[in-house]
């Protein structure tokens, strides 16, 4: 799972008001290099929630991102390289994503987050009601 994906993911448990950002518990992180696409990075910069992104990159052991960023920094190659690396090249291979409100852990195995809610949670709330 890339941090781009992490920046989009939100806990979808019913009743959770703010399920974003999910806290990362990193057990294994991988780096896979990909070609840089400046246009994509510039578009993504507008979408990315910067604080969540910086926190996530630190949870993954990457500390090169500035605390704050604005679009003028996109002219800097050094900034773009770091943004690119953290957004697209860092992968959470093993670990979990934790809902900020409920503490529910969504496991990440072999790079794949499983965001399904166990049916027990859904069913029981119906049946018990």
């Amino acid at each position: 799972m890339r941090l781009l994906t992490h920046n989009m993911l939100s806990s979808n448990i019913k009743g959770v008001v703010n399920g974003f950002p999910l806290r990362i518990e990193a057990e294994k992180v991988a780096e896979k290099s990909v070609e840089m696409n400046r246009e994509f990075l510039k578009k993504m910069f507008q979408k990315v929630h910067w604080k969540a992104f910086v926190d996530a990159s630190r949870a993954m052991g990457y500390t090169e991102l500035p605390e704050k960023a604005d679009s003028s920094m996109l002219n800097s190659d050094e900034f773009l390289n770091r943004f690119h690396h953290a957004l697209l090249e860092l992968h959470l291979e093993e670990g979990a994503l934790v809902c900020p409100e409920t503490g529910r852990r969504f496991p990440v195995n072999k790079g794949i987050p499983n965001m399904l809610l166990p049916q027990e949670e859904v069913l029981l709330s119906i049946i018990i009601c």
Binding site: M1, N7, L9, S10, S11, I112, P113, M115, L117
Partner: peptide, 17 residues
């Protein structure tokens, strides 16, 4: 880049895509 999720209940932020 993929994840396991339910299309009826997407675990995505609103308006990101």
């Amino acid at each position: 880049e993929v994840l396991v999720a339910d299309a009826v209940n997407l675990p995505y932020r609103t308006g990101f895509g």
